[in-house]
């Protein structure tokens, strides 16, 4: 029986880990992106009282190592009387952390949009919210797609930290196989394959989105 056979026999564990990673990642990035959009929308109004708190939130998240944030949520919050399950702590951590990054990415692209087309929207009767959804956000997404793609990969890799707070993700599965049968190389190589697969699918999606932008002349990014 080779080491690879051992890994193959533990495929259920890996599959469970894969599903956990995938579900946590998908929900987290969807929420994080939504959070990023909401923050940028709030910052549209130059006089908003939200400016300082939101800017501070973004800066704090960017300064914090992800693992430290997760430790705080999982080990720190109980001392404040809030006890989160590992999965929820992971989800909240990923959402806020990468939400701040998404906000920063979108805000950076927002600055480059011409003010003229915004005025054109107002002049044709758009309200700020409708204009944001119909005219600004689509352009931000087209323009920011390479950066968004990058951030997705970072977020995926950050899910691996969550095994430290006992989330039963891919890395947890590999770690547990490796610890039980002492096959670290094979177990972790197998897991790399899974991460690579998810990255590949995202890469293809971003490239597809690139064609969408190319057709519209958004190639100057």
């Amino acid at each position: 029986m080779t080491n690879w056979d051992i890994v193959w026999d533990s495929r259920d564990l890996l599959w469970q880990g894969f599903l956990n990673t995938l579900s946590l990642f998908s929900v987290a990035i969807a929420l994080a992106f939504l959070l990023g959009c909401l923050i940028v929308y709030r910052l549209e109004d130059p006089k908003t009282r939200w400016r300082l708190p939101l800017r501070s939130f973004i800066d704090i998240m960017r300064m914090l190592p992800f693992l430290v944030l997760v430790y705080l949520l999982y080990y720190g919050l109980p001392s404040a009387g809030i006890r989160l399950e590992a999965w929820w702590a992971g989800l909240i951590g990923l959402t806020f952390y990468h939400g701040a990054y998404f906000a920063e990415i979108l805000r950076g692209c927002r600055v480059t949009l011409s003010n003229g087309q915004i005025e054109a929207a107002y002049a044709h009767g758009f309200t700020p919210s409708r204009m944001f959804i119909r005219l600004i956000l689509p352009q931000l997404m087209i323009q920011a797609r390479p950066l968004i793609g990058n951030q997705l990969v970072y977020a995926l890799k950050d899910t691996a930290f969550l095994f430290i707070i006992t989330v039963k993700d891919l890395t947890w599965a590999a770690n547990s196989i490796s610890a039980t049968y002492f096959v670290p190389t094979e177990a972790f190589v197998a897991v790399i394959g899974f991460y690579w697969l998810i990255s590949l699918v995202m890469e293809m999606a971003i490239r597809y989105a690139g064609r969408f932008g190319h057709k519209r002349g958004f190639d100057h990014v």
Binding site: S114, Q117, E119, A120, L135, Q139, R216
Partner: peptide, 12 residues
């Protein structure tokens, strides 16, 4: 409705 000097069409 308004027509602008720099057109201001929505590029997407």
């Amino acid at each position: 409705a308004m027509v602008f000097q720099s057109f201001n069409l929505w590029p997407h």
